[in-house]
Design a protein around this nucleic acid. Sequence first.
DNA 1: TGAGTGCAGGATGTATACAACAACGGCGCG
DNA 2: CGCGCCGTTGTTGTATACATCCTGCACTCA
Lengths: 250, 250
Amino acid sequence: MSERDAERSVSQTVRAQLALRDLILSGRLRPGERISELQAVDITGVSRTPVRLALVRLEDEGLLQAIPSGGFMVKAFTERDILDSIELRGTLEGLAARFAAERGVSARSLEPLKECLADLDQLVRQDPISVEAFSAYVTMNARFHALLNELSASAPLIREIDRVSALPFASPSAFVMAQSALPEAHQILLIAQDHHRIVVDAIENREGARAEAVMREHSRLAARNLRLAIRNRTNLDLLPALALLKSSAE
Amino acid sequence: MSERDAERSVSQTVRAQLALRDLILSGRLRPGERISELQAVDITGVSRTPVRLALVRLEDEGLLQAIPSGGFMVKAFTERDILDSIELRGTLEGLAARFAAERGVSARSLEPLKECLADLDQLVRQDPISVEAFSAYVTMNARFHALLNELSASAPLIREIDRVSALPFASPSAFVMAQSALPEAHQILLIAQDHHRIVVDAIENREGARAEAVMREHSRLAARNLRLAIRNRTNLDLLPALALLKSSAE
DNA sequence: TGAGTGCAGGATGTATACAACAACGGCGCG
DNA sequence: CGCGCCGTTGTTGTATACATCCTGCACTCA
C-alpha cells in the first residue's frame, strides 16, 4: 500500500531514473551498450519525455555518456578511473576538512560529529564484528562524512563532493561492505576510525594541514579495499561498481 | 547566410541554452528570480521541450537552482561562494599537476605546453601591455590550463575541472580582463607567468608536491584580482560574474 | 570484386495537447 | 474584523504525433 503511494508520489522522471540506474549498476546493461529511448520506454513503462529527462540526469551523474550523433551509451570505467575518482573525493574532503579547521567551527556544531564518532567507536569495538554491525557502520560512516563536509560551510564545495560521491564506486561507503569478507576487515576499520578521530581533533585545534592530509589518506583506504577485493575475488553482489569496469576480465 | 546555417545546424536545445545563459550572465534575469518555462519559450522562440532540457542543463551547470515544488530560479552567489569556487578549482588543478608530475609525462607530450609557455612569455614581455595583448593572453592562458589538465591523463579529474571552470567566475581566465584596468596589472601577469614556468619545471622533474602547491597558489591570483576589482569598482561589463552576486550592494 | 549510392528502418529532435498540481486571491462565515 | 475555505489561474508534468537525421544494408555499376 505504502509502496503504491510512494510510486504514485514521485514523478515519472525520478522513477525512470531509478529504474535505469538499477539496471546499469546491476550490470544488466553492459558498458558501451547503446541505450535507446524506446528501449528505455519499454523497460520503465513511462513515456519518452520523462525518459529523456532521466537519461540527461544520468549523463551528468556520470553513468551515461552522450553519443555525438545523439543518444546515450552506458559509460565504461577503467580501474584507473575508479582509483582516480577515489583520490578526487579524498582531495575534496580534505579541502572541506581544511576549511572547517582554518575557519573554525563552534563547539556546538562539532557536537553531532563527536556523537557520531562515539557511535562508530561502539561498533568498531566489537570483535569479531557482525554483519549487522558492518551494515550499521556503513550508515554511520556516511553520516560522519556528511556532517564533516557540512562543517566546511561551503555550498560550492559540498555540491562537488556530493557529485563525486554519487559515482557508485567513489562514495565513502562503497567498499566497506565488500571489505567485510576480507580477513583484514577489522584492522582496516580500526584504522579508518582512527582517521575519523584525528580529523575531528585537527579541526578542533584548527590544524588545517593536518585535517586535510588525514582525509586524503583516509580515502586511500577505499583504494586499498578495492584492490584487495579484486584480488580476493570478493562476491560481485557486494560490489556493484565492478559491473561498470571496462573489459571485465575478472 | 552562414549565420542562418549555423542557427539551423545547432539544436534548439543548445540555442535555448545559450540564449538563457546570456540573459543570466548579463544580469537581465536577476538572481533569485523565478524563470518559468513559458517565459523562456517567449524569450527563446523554441518550444517547451527543448527549453526544459536547456533549463535542466543550466541547472547542473550551476547557474539555475531547482525549486522544490517544480521549476527553476536564477542562482545567487555570495562573494564567499566565488572565492571558494576559485580555491576549489585551484585544488583540482593542483591535483592534475601532481598526477602529471608523479606519473611522469613524455618529453613529446610536454612539447605543446612549452610552446604555449613561450607564446605567453612573448605577450608578457611587452611594457605596457596593449589591450589586444591582454585579450591574446586570455586565450593562450586558457589553452595552457587545458593542456596542463590533459597531462593528468585522468578523465574523471578533467571532467570535474571542466565542470568547475564552467562557472562564470571560477575559470582561469575569468578575472584577467578585469585586471587589465588595474595599475597592478603587469606585475600580476608576470607573477602568473612565473607560476606557469614553475609548474612545467616541476612536472618535468617529477616534483609532485611542488607542482600541486604552485597551482593552488596560482589560483589565488584570481581571488586577489576579484577583490581588487571589486574594491576599485572596475567596469561591470568586464565582470559578468558580478551580475550573479547576492544583494549586489556594489 | 570492391566501392559507391540509394533506400528503408529506426533513432532522436521538436512541437503541442492534455492532465494534475500549486499558489493566490476573493468571498463567506465565524 | 480576521480567519479559513474554495475556486480560479497559471504552472509544471506527461504523453504522443510529426519531422528530421543517421545508420546499416543491399544492389548496382565500374
